[in-house]
């Protein structure tokens, strides 16, 4: 039994007198795709910021990395946000290269890797285009490539498909599972879509709002690779109902 890659125990976070997170405790194993699901205001994004090292927790224990999977907080985090947030003055390839530049990684190798990643996310041939020439879904694919270019151990995704239309979103879910399998990263995926959380996650962590607290944490025992028709399986429905109930619906 290997040790967890992420270990949170009793994590608290307050902003002034607003309690953003009270007592979040869960573990994520190396290579897992953990879905963090909950309504807006439940502290999901705050939790991601703590994992990214952008904000310290006010209490509890946050440990990332293990002897077998060491973690360097200064270079092992990749981030994807709800908006693609590509730099509009840079070509797609140069956008993907941004983290490598910031970390000062060797140029030629990084370019090679960026090209490979653009291929992986299905954007081969778009290297020299500017962001405005791509659709929203394609921009988000480029943002995913950008989050992977410096080969981070942990990728944090904050509702990355929330702004896409329903069909593109389904497609991107399948794409993400494929990319996750090929890239072999540990991913923490924040969403308020219950079906998305169950479909993507090897593990689902449920957070409730008002006050923000952790309500559940379970492993999703559905086979991989996942396919869209699994959404009609009984077991999928059981997991989804479990989350709906916790969220009081």
């Amino acid at each position: 039994m290997s040790r967890p890659f992420i270990h949170l125990a009793g994590v608290r976070k307050t902003y002034g007198d607003h309690l953003a997170i009270s007592d979040a405790s869960f573990d994520v194993m190396p290579g897992e795709l953990a879905s963090l699901v909950g309504p807006s205001g439940c502290g999901k994004s705050t939790l991601l910021k703590i994992l990214a090292g952008l904000h310290p927790a006010d209490g509890g224990e946050v440990r990332i990395g293990s002897p077998s999977h060491p973690f360097d907080p200064s270079r092992d985090v990749g981030m994807v946000f709800q908006a693609p947030l590509l730099l509009k003055w840079r070509r797609i390839l140069d956008n993907v290269l941004l983290p490598a530049e910031i970390l000062g990684l060797p140029g030629a190798e990084s370019r090679e890797r960026a090209r490979h990643l653009l291929q992986l996310v299905g954007l081969a041939g778009n290297e020299a285009k500017y962001p405005y020439e791509l659709s929203g879904g394609m921009q988000q694919r480029a943002a995913i490539a950008r989050a992977l270019v410096h080969d981070p151990k942990l990728v944090l995704m904050d509702e990355p498909f929330g702004a896409l239309d329903a069909l593109t979103r389904e497609k991107m879910n399948l794409e993400l599972l494929r990319i996750w399998k090929e890239a072999g990263k540990t991913i923490v995926f924040v969403t308020h879509g219950i079906s998305e959380a169950v479909f993507l996650g090897t593990r689902v962590v449920v957070l409730t709002a008002g006050p923000a607290r952790m309500a559940d944490n379970f492993v999703v025992d559905l086979p991989h690779p996942r396919t869209l028709d699994m959404k009609t399986h009984e077991r999928f429905g059981d997991y989804a109902r479990r989350v709906y109930r916790l969220l009081g619906m």
């Binding site: 910021k49 990214a52 090292g53 952008l54 907080p73 200064s74 270079r75 985090v77 981030m79 946000f81 908006a83 947030l85 730099l87 003055w89 941004l98 983290p99 530049e101 910031i102 970390l103 410096h150 904050d158």
Partner: peptide, 25 residues
């Protein structure tokens, strides 16, 4: 967008990098 600044900060980018790569352009 503040998230862009977060992205650079999560990689422990310097203020100078933040300025030249994100803020100024």
């Amino acid at each position: 967008e503040p998230e862009l600044l977060d992205l650079v900060r999560s990689l422990r980018g310097s203020r100078w990098q933040l300025f030249t790569k994100i803020q100024l352009p």
